[in-house]
Amino acid sequence: MKNFEYAAPTTESEALQLLGDSSVSTEILAGGTDLVGLMKKMIVTPDRVVNILGIPSLRTLERRVDGQLWIGAAVTLDTLLDSPYLAGYDAVTQAIRGINSMQFQCQGTIGGEICQRPQCWFFRGGRGLLGEGGQAAANGDNRYHAIFGNDGPAKFVHSSRIAPALIALGAAVRVIGGAAGRGPDGADGEVGERLVPIAEFFQTPRHERQRETILAPNQLVTHIVLPSPAGIANATYEVRHGEGPDYPLAAASAALRMDGERVADARIVMGQVAPTPWNTVAAAALLRGRSIDETVAEAAGQAAVADATPLSQNAYKVQLAKVAVKRAILAAAGHPTGGF
């Protein structure tokens, strides 16, 4: 591990000051379940580490009168699991439970979970975020890599297990700093602030200087904002190779706005299949106006993967993504999934 300066701010603006110093490279530390390992392997080598756990506003969990749930970015996953406010957000609860590790759940934060770096073994083996411009995965062992959105250099899959559920449920991310002038109240010199729809928070990096989110080095995620789950049937299904904390092979979250027996609107988002969580419009379109049964769910799964572009060794993931979508839809509608 490279020596670094450690800072523990207690306010959001103090944190932004520490992050905004462009003369040093910075990393944000919350639970540390991902960052510490990356630093020990010297995959990331910040000059300054900014620990945000001591900022009280980031540790709040608040249900507002309009039904929105504001989750502080530094709220731990086990706190969320214990919270009555999570009722109705089944897709989120299931995704957190799926992590299958009390240590990760107790130590990991929701902000850290969605900002975690890719598990790609080329990245973690020190061969760059894109793995030698995508060549390492294109020519090498890509069994766990992307089957969508992989035409550029990024072949890794986005690792967040909760992000697909958050996107399906229409969440937003409160981002502060850096965007002064871009945010709604971000006049120069002030703390910029904006709510970003979470689907737009993730990006596929095109080169090594980009990351997997739109977050600039001088910005901070402070809250995840979930709309009320009223009337939304939702679920997450992960295909896991074993019962450990290992990452799923494919996953999907489904959120269905029901009109009686029929689906009025749907959002289906796949995880672990692309460099970002992957929203499948085709599957959602297929569900609209229909009532859910196994045939409809199967067809939606099929539609979700119709445009998949597997790499040389991961065609099997197309089947797994299809099954994940099918089972997430069935689970959301309260039907048995037919599998494990």
Partner: peptide, 25 residues
């Protein structure tokens, strides 16, 4: 042990990727 045919790298040499049975398995 997953070895990368292209580079010869032992790709899953950390417990993150080297899968073992857990109690639930």
């Amino acid at each position: 042990r997953i070895a990368d045919r292209a580079s010869g790298a032992f790709l899953n040499s950390e417990l993150r990727d080297y899968k073992l049975a857990r109690l639930g398995d």
